[in-house]
Design a protein around this nucleic acid. Structure first.
Lengths: 342, 342
DNA sequence: TTGTACGCGTTATCAA
DNA sequence: TTGATAACGCGTACAA
C-alpha cells in the first residue's frame, strides 16, 4: 500500500487515457455524450489510477456542496441524538453529507458556529439550538443559505419552521388534574440553561396555575440523574408527597427512584410527569408517564423540508408536531387527556 | 435583509478597499506584514460588505480542510452518541468541523461511505463501524487520510487504534461465577447483525464455557426493548431462572422487567448482566449490573489521537480501554471481579 | 463526439 | 509593505 501517493487529478486521468480533461469530466458526471469506447477507456484508467474526484473542487466549480449543516448543542441527550438519527437517515437516502456545528451553552460559540455555517458553503442548514435567537438565524439566511429551524419561529423566503407543541397538552393536563381531584402540590423542576423548550413549558405551567389561582412550586435542580437523585433523597425526608413535572426522563427517573427508595409510593404519594419522554420512560418501574414527540420523525421531516426548500418546491413552510400523552404508571389518572378540555 | 445577495468575494473586498486581493488575504489570515492603516481599511470594508471567506476555496488552495470525517452507524444507540459527543467536544475545542458519514447495516453503503470520505478531502477520519473490515479501512489510509479506528486493529503509518477490551472481564466474570456458586444456567442473548463487539463477546462467552465444560444457551433476540420484553414475558412462563448476558441496557432492562413482571425475583431467580452499560443502567430498578466503558472518553481520546496523527506527533498508536464491572442489583455476587482470576 | 479556455475563491511565490 | 500571477482541481460554454 502506497501511503505517499499524491492525489490523482482529473488531469492525470485525461493524460493517461489520451483524452482531454473535459471528456473525463463528462464520464464521471455521466452527462454529455461520450463514445462507449472512450468511456470505457477512461473508466479503466480511473480504476487503474484509483482516481477520486475532489468534492472540494467540484463544489467550487458548481457552487453546490451536497452538504447540509446541522447546528445542535453538543449535549448528549437522547432526544437530540434522535433528531440527528432522523436527519442522518434522510441525508443518506438523498445523498447529502452532514456537517456538524456543535454548540455549547455559550452564546459566543453559538455565534461562531453561525460564521462557520456561512463560510462552509453548505447547501442548507438545520438549526436545533436553544442558544440562538431569531436574529442570529436570520444572519444565516441573509447569506442565501436555506434553513429549517426547529422549535423557533423565524420568517423569511428561505426559512421553514418546525414547531414542537407541548403547551396545549400541558395546559389540559394541569386543568384536568385540578378539576378532577388533584390533591398533591405541583412542582416544576427548573433546570438552569436548559433552553427554550423548557422555558416555554415553565411559563405555561406558571400561567395555568395563576389562571386557576393554585399554588405551585419551582424547584431548581441540576440536569443530572445522579445529583437530582441525591437532591430528592434529601427532599423526600421532609416532603412526603407531590406531583413533579420534569424536563427529561433522566430527571423524572431520578425523582421517582428517590421517592421509591424513600419508601414512598408512586403514584399514590408522588406523581411524576416527564416533558420530553423517550423510550427510556418505558424501561422504568413504575413506567414513567410522559409527554412525547417522535424526535426521529422531527429530524426526518426537517430534512425533507430543507431539501424541498433548496429545490424551491416547499409548499408548507411550517410543520407542527403535537406532543401526545403517554400514560404510564407514575401518574394516578389513567384516563388520558382531552385536548379540548377548557 | 437582502436574501438575493451574492457571495462577496475577496476580490470585491480588495476593489472596495483599493488594495490588491493579496493584501486582503494577508489581513484575514493575520500573516505577512500589513500597515495598521491598510489593515483597518480592509477590516472595515470586510465588515461593511459582510465578507466571509469561502472555506471551499481556502481548502482547495491550502490542501487542508480542518474537517474531520466520522464514520458511524446511523443506529441510534446511546453509546454511539456518547462517542460522538466526545468527538464533538474536542473538535469544537480544537477548531475542527465534523463531517458525518452515516452507514447502515448494509455493506454496500458502508463502502460508499469510504468513497465519500476519500472524495471529501477531510484531514482525517474516525471510524467506529462494525460493517467495515481492516481492508476497507486500508483503502482510506492508502489515500493518505489519517485514520483512528475504534474497536478494530488496522496497521499502517497513518493509523491509530482504540481497543475496547471486554474479554478479560467477561472471562473472569464467568469463571468466578461458576467457581463460587453459579447455579443458574447462563444464556447469551444473540442479536443478529449487532456487530463485531457483540460477536467477540459471544465468542468469548462460548470459549469460556467450553473450557469449563459447562452448558450454556444462546438465545436469539431482536435489538428492541419492546420485542425483547414481549419475548421474555413468554419465555419466563416456562423458564423460571437463569443468568442472562445482554448486549445493551435496553435489552437487559427488557429481560429484567419481563422477569419482574412475571413474578420472578431479580437477582434471586433471574440475574442480568449488560455488556455495554450506559447511565441508563442506573435508572433501572433493580439497578442493572453492567460492564462499562466511558464512551465519551473514547470519543475524546480518538479525536486527540487523530489530531496528533495529523500533526505527525503521535507517540502511542494504540489505546486500550478496559471495561469495568459496575456492580448493580441484578446480579447476586456483589464482590466485584478479580481481573487476575484464573 | 471531443478539445480549448475560462471561471470558481482562495493561498502563496516572487517582484517591485 | 504591497501587487501581479500562478497554482489548487474541477465544470462548462463554446468551438472544432
Amino acid at each position: 500500500m502506497n501511503y505517499e501517493k499524491d492525489r490523482v487529478t482529473i488531469y492525470q486521468v485525461a493524460k493517461a487515457s489520451g483524452v482531454s480533461l473535459a471528456t473525463v469530466s463528462r464520464v464521471i458526471n455521466k452527462q454529455g455524450s461520450v463514445t462507449p469506447a472512450t468511456r470505457k477507456k477512461v473508466e479503466d484508467t480511473i480504476a487503474r489510477l484509483g482516481y477520486r474526484p475532489s468534492s472540494l473542487a467540484q463544489s467550487l466549480a458548481t457552487n453546490r456542496t451536497t452538504n447540509i449543516g446541522v447546528v445542535i448543542p453538543s449535549a448528549n441527550y437522547v432526544f437530540i441524538s434522535n433528531v440527528l438519527a432522523g436527519i442522518t437517515e434522510v441525508a443518506r437516502e438523498r445523498g447529502y453529507l452532514l456537517t456538524l456545528f456543535a454548540t455549547t451553552h455559550s452564546r459566543e460559540e453559538a455565534l461562531a458556529s453561525i460564521e462557520k455555517v456561512i463560510s462552509s458553503h453548505v447547501d442548507g442548514v438545520i438549526v436545533f439550538d436553544d442558544q440562538l435567537s431569531k436574529d442570529d438565524v436570520s444572519v444565516i439566511t441573509s447569506y442565501n443559505v436555506p434553513a429549517v429551524i426547529i422549535d423557533e419561529q423565524v420568517s423569511g423566503d428561505i426559512v421553514a419552521n418546525i414547531h414542537l407543541s407541548y403547551d396545549p397538552l400541558l395546559t389540559s393536563f394541569i386543568k384536568q388534574y385540578y378539576s378532577r381531584r388533584g390533591n398533591k402540590a405541583m412542582s416544576f423542576l427548573h433546570v438552569h440553561n436548559a433552553g427554550r423548550l423548557l422555558q416555554h413549558a415553565e411559563k405555561s405551567f406558571i400561567r395555568n396555575h395563576n389562571e386557576l389561582g393554585k399554588e405551585y412550586n419551582i424547584i431548581n435542580c441540576d440536569d443530572s440523574y445522579t445529583r437530582t437523585y441525591a437532591q430528592f433523597l434529601e427532599y423526600f425526608k421532609t416532603n412526603r408527597s407531590g406531583l413533579f413535572v420534569c424536563y427529561r426522563d433522566s430527571i423524572g427517573a431520578a425523582v421517582m427512584n428517590a421517592a421509591t427508595d424513600s419508601g414512598l409510593n408512586v403514584p399514590n404519594d408522588v406523581e411524576i410527569l416527564t416533558l420530553i419522554g423517550t423510550k427510556y420512560a418505558r424501561i422504568c418501574r413504575p413506567v414513567l408517564s410522559c409527554f412525547h414527540i417522535d424526535m426521529e420523525e422531527v429530524g426526518k421531516r426537517s430534512m425533507y423540508m430543507l431539501i424541498d426548500l433548496i429545490n424551491n418546491q416547499l409548499q408548507e413552510r411550517t410543520a407542527t408536531f403535537d406532543a401526545t400523552y403517554s400514560i404510564g404508571e407514575s401518574t394516578v389518572d389513567r384516563r388520558g387527556l382531552d385536548p379540548d378540555y377548557k
